[in-house]
Structure formats: structure tokens, C-alpha cells
Design a binder for these strands. Structure first.
Lengths: 230, 230
DNA sequence: GGTTCTATTTGACGCAGCGCAAAGTGCGAG
DNA sequence: CTCGCACTTTGCGCTGCGTCAAATAGAACC
């Protein structure tokens, strides 16, 4: 399968690589399509591949031994994902599935060390990628430790708007299907509380709900709410 | 300043390097001592160095804009810390200070890319290090999302016992000064609740408290408690 | 040995948000 | 068009844990 260089060239991950290097890496990749609801990899299975999302949107979830689920993160186009091998793991720590029709590249994990050692720039980039992700995780921990639910949910919605927002008349549309349950799992609360909050916000004209849909009408006021101003 | 190779050789980070490579890296390092309470770096200041803890124990904290504090992590001997540069940041995201008399190495951040590109094995190791840290962060998020306070505190204490425990007659001593407040900041609760829990546990013979001290008497039962069995 | 400072304990009280339950609604399948 | 399912909304009662407040106890310092 032939993948065109121009597709990945704008991504920060590849920005410092020469055309030759990019081609070299792409020559080992296979591209795949995932329909909405399809899983890309499953928690606990051997981590045989690592991936790059070209298009669409994925949710990565973890299930605890006692059956509770959380959303670890949302994968946006351009993100590397599923590189468990770099985490010194043999299996995937979570399950990734498509929240929208998605297109992604896959490489065998066995090539990871090879790529990194061949191409130190990739190593530095990858390090930055994980670094960012670590920082996101710390942000989430900080929010969960210190903020009440309403602010956390507001922050989560704002991040979604920023990362997955599409301008629309009257606001910013979250560009994939997302349920109250999903938002609850991203913020450590219950779908009931999220529903109540969104209803309240809708009453104040901040957002507009819908089945698996969300439209942010007043970004400014939502931001203020997230910052703790009542 | 001359640092002997044998000090760092047993650390996983250096395990795959040749003596020559290790010497090369050490030749750029300076070693420092921090007395209890000293800060190694401060949140928001330019990240001019990255570090390796040889000895002692550090706490890394973050303060939120509204003055709330959380403990991001505890640094144990052998850990790299403060490599904000790899996180694509120019300043330190937190403050590190010594919870016990500590000894550490420091390198200018400007050498980071150089080291990584010179020495791909280091890159892979560093990636694994951050990967582990990311996983820890996710564990914490998962716990905060799904578990009630008692289990979270139990898990935190168990981790401390594992990473910083020293066998002692009658139990495992946490090997540095740690307050109820610290434990609260590690688990996202208040010092009051932690104090109440520890008192209750002490009554049941699980732990033994003290001012800034903690001794785990019954690891087994504490583990069961952490797993949710009452 | 007393004074002071900081850490810890403990009690009393209140409420944010969870659990439970039931009703409402949009959407896809047929 | 209608049926049925999955998602959402909303009400209500309860409780885990935070907040406020005050007492107690080590440690450090003079």
C-alpha cells in the first residue's frame, strides 16, 4: 500500500524529517479504515502495532477490574496512539475505538526501536508527544483534586471545543458523537450530574445539547465558569 | 567535579550504555546536595537544568492559580526529574524540594537534545521512563474517578511502602518525613479525612502513625482494603 | 523547663453530588 | 409509519466527605 508523503508532512511529528526519511518510515506502514464503533485495539491484547490517526476521532477507554470504565483520552487527527511498547508494556493498557469514521496508519511495534535509533529526531518528537500527554494527565489530576464537578466538566467541554470544534452558525460544534456518559467518564462523575449541568447551562444559553451532540454557544462565559467565576 | 561511574551504573537508565558513553555524560554533570526543605527548582522559573536523584527523596508540587497545592509525584533515588525541556516547556511545571537530605546530579538542558541524538539508547530509556510516569498518572486518574477516598489513600500508602519503604521490626517504615497534608495532596482529599482514616486504621492495627511518620504494620490487610474488600 | 510553632486529632454540621428510579425523546431498523 | 432501543432528563433521598472550629501533642528553640 502506497501512502503519500504529503498527507503526513504537515504534522509536527514529521516536520523535521527529510522527504527520504519520511518515505522510509511510510514504506513500512499500512493504512486502515475504521467505521464508527469499530475497535482499533483492545485492552490487554498484545501490542503488536503502533498507530497514527490521519482522520476521524478515537476514544481510548480503560476498564477497571471491577467493571468501571473511564475515558483515558480522545485521539485527534495527527496524534500517535497505541505505542504501548514505548511504555515498556507488552499489551495495550486500554481499548481504542472509533467515535467517527476514521483513517489511520499502523506499524509493527518491532520497528519502534529501529525507527527511534535510526532517526533521533523522531525520538525527540515522540518524547515531546508523550511529555504533552503527561502534562494533560497532570492537569486532569489537578482539576480532579481541587475543583468541583461543574468546573471540571466546563474545562472538559472547552478542551473538546478547542481540539475537536468546528465553527457553525451560532457556536462551536463538537465534531463527533459524544454522550453524557462519555463526558462523565472524562471528568470522573456520573452521567446524571453531567446531564443536569448541561441542562442548566442550556437554560443560561451557554450550550445546546442533543442526543450525542453538543454545541458550545457562548465560549467566553463557559470559560469564565471554568475559571471559577460564578 | 568528578563523579564515579559506579554510582550510576546500576541504574536502569544507564544499564545499556558503554563505560565510555557513561563517562561522557557524567563529564558534563555537576552534583549537588540539598538539605531537607531546600528547593531544587521552582515552578515557573526557566528550565535550565535536568536532574537525576542519586540519594534521598524529593517531593514535586504544583500550585494552582487559586493557591491550592497538589503533590505531583515523589522522586525516588535513580529517577530522572525536572526534564521539562523534553516536555516542550521552557519553565518548570512544578516545584521540587527535598523531603530528606538528598544528593543529585544536574545537567544543562541545552545538552538534552545532544545526548539524545548522540545516544539513541538513552532516548529509548527516557521514553520508557516518561511512559511509566504517564501510566502512573493514568492510574491516579482512574483511582480518583472510580474509588472512594479510603481506597485511594490505601493505594497511596502502599505505593509509598513499596517505593520508599524500609523494613523495620513490626512493619515497613516510610523512609522520609511525610505529613497527613502530603498524603491528602497525593490523593485529592483533605488532611482531616486522611487523619481520620489513619486513626481508624491504627485502631485496627494496620498502621502506626506519628508526627510526619508512618509505619505500615499489616501490608496484607491494607492491600485487601485497597482492593475494595471491607 | 517553658514557650512557641506546627502537625495532628476529633467533633459537629452541611451539602454537593451520587444512587436509584422512572419518565421522556430522538433515531435507526424494518 | 411504527416499533424498540439507547440516550437523556428529572425528581428525591441519602451519605461521604469537605468545612469550620477547637483541643491536643510533639519538636524545636531559647
Amino acid at each position: 500500500m502506497r501512502i503519500d508523503r504529503s498527507i503526513v508532512k504537515p504534522l509536527p511529528l514529521f516536520s523535521k524529517m527529510s522527504d527520504g526519511e519520511i518515505d522510509q518510515i511510510l514504506s513500512h506502514a499500512t493504512s486502515s479504515r475504521a467505521a464508527q464503533g469499530d475497535t482499533v485495539f483492545v485492552q490487554g491484547t498484545p501490542a503488536n502495532h503502533f498507530f497514527l490517526l490521519l482522520n476521524g476521532r478515537l476514544k481510548v477507554t480503560q476498564v477497571t477490574p471491577d467493571g468501571q470504565q473511564i475515558i483515558v483520552r480522545v485521539v485527534h487527527p495527527g496524534d500517535l496512539f497505541g505505542f504501548a511498547k514505548a511504555l515498556q508494556r507488552l499489551d495495550y493498557p486500554g481499548t481504542a475505538f472509533a467515535a467517527a469514521e476514521s483513517l489511520y496508519l499502523a506499524w509493527p511495534t518491532s520497528l519502534w526501536s529501529f525507527f527511534v535509533e535510526q532517526n533521533p529526531v523522531l525520538a525527540v518528537s515522540a518524547l515531546q508527544t508523550i511529555g504533552n500527554r503527561l502534562e494533560e494527565a497532570h492537569t486532569r489530576i489537578r482539576e480532579m483534586s481541587t475543583q468541583e464537578v461543574e468546573r471540571r466538566v466546563a474545562h472538559a467541554v472547552l478542551r473538546l471545543a478547542e481540539k475537536a470544534g468546528r465553527a457553525e452558525d451560532g457556536g462551536i460544534r463538537i465534531d463527533f458523537q459524544i454522550s453524557r456518559q462519555d463526558i462523565a467518564e472524562m471528568t470522573g462523575t456520573t452521567l446524571h450530574t453531567v446531564s443536569r449541568l448541561l441542562s442548566a447551562w442550556e437554560g443560561k444559553g451557554l450550550v445546546e445539547g442533543g442526543r450525542q451532540k453538543l454545541l458550545v454557544r457562548d465560549l467566553k462565559r463557559l470559560s469564565r465558569l471554568a475559571e471559577g467565576e460564578k
